[in-house]
């Protein structure tokens, strides 16, 4: 049994023509939820894309290990079947693909589909085309719903709270809590997660373990996620740069 569910070592990644990640490290144990903060455009989504194996994201150096085995060269669908699930930041709306039909392909349990749809207030959206005309909050809820049905071991959430109003943040974060087994004490949880957040509002409702700040294509800090968030809320990312230059680089990783 590998020590970590996910282990990323010295990862260098190009997105398009640009090198975005420059020697990134992160290790995630079973049951741990990690939060990645960082200014826009620093490569948070690129990291998630590299783990999932999305197109136009190219690993040029380093490795991504899932249960001790490299994911490099493995297609997106196979990574999903290995137990990695993603909640996209900007999921597409697809004509003619009814939401219910997609959910049935992901998971054939009608009872489970119904239960999760009701919990996420998407009961009336099941017969509609995927994400077509959904509000910002509904699109995000729909991502969480699919993750529930997919039942992955590692959940990657890319900005699950962006564009979601305050009422729906409660609905979505309640579902994420259930998805990530946050009602259990740390140590008893089985499912792991990497959550990307720019604004961080969702952290008011979640009980996460480790926080990181992404700067210059690397993860820094590696401390308690709420502590980092409260500092960022107070001073913005300016102070992260200050702190880093004062203390030298502190490698990022699990506890």
């Amino acid at each position: 049994m590998a020590k970590y569910l996910l282990e990323i070592r010295d990862l260098w990644v190009d997105a398009g023509e640009k090198t975005i990640l420059k020697g990134l490290n992160i290790s995630v144990r079973e049951g741990e939820s990690h939060v990645i903060f960082g200014p826009n455009g620093t490569g948070k989504s690129t990291l998630i894309g590299a783990i999932m194996g999305l197109p136009n994201i190219k690993v040029t150096k380093g490795d991504i290990l899932f249960r001790g085995k490299s994911l490099l060269g493995i297609l997106v669908d196979e990574r999903a079947r290995k137990g990695i699930g993603i909640g996209f930041q900007h999921p597409p709306a697809i004509d003619g693909i009814m939401l219910r039909k997609l959910l049935e392909i992901i998971n054939s349990s009608q009872a489970e589909i119904k239960r999760i749809a009701l919990a996420l207030k998407l009961g009336r959206h099941l017969e509609r085309d995927l994400n077509k005309g959904f509000s910002g909050g509904e699109v995000k809820a729909c991502e969480i719903m699919q993750l529930f049905l997919q039942n992955p071991d590692l959940v990657l959430l890319d900005e699950p709270d962006s564009g979601v109003d305050i009422e729906n943040i409660k609905v979505i974060s309640k579902a994420i809590r259930e998805l990530l087994q946050m009602n259990l004490p740390i140590g008893k949880r089985k499912r792991s997660a990497i959550i990307i957040t720019h604004g961080g509002n969702i952290l008011n409702y979640l009980d996460t373990d480790v926080g990181h700040v992404m700067i210059d294509g690397k993860l820094k800090c590696g401390a308690d996620s709420r502590e980092i968030f409260s500092k960022i809320k107070k001073c913005g990312y300016r102070d992260c740069y200050k702190c880093l230059s004062a203390n030298g680089e502190k490698p990022s990783g699990g506890k």
């Binding site: 197109p55 699930g85 993603i86 697809i94 699919q146």
Partner: peptide
């Protein structure tokens, strides 16, 4: 490609 990789990320083959 976006639609394709979205569906594949749910474990659906190409």
């Amino acid at each position: 490609e976006t639609e394709l990789s979205y569906l594949m990320a749910r474990g659906i083959d190409e």
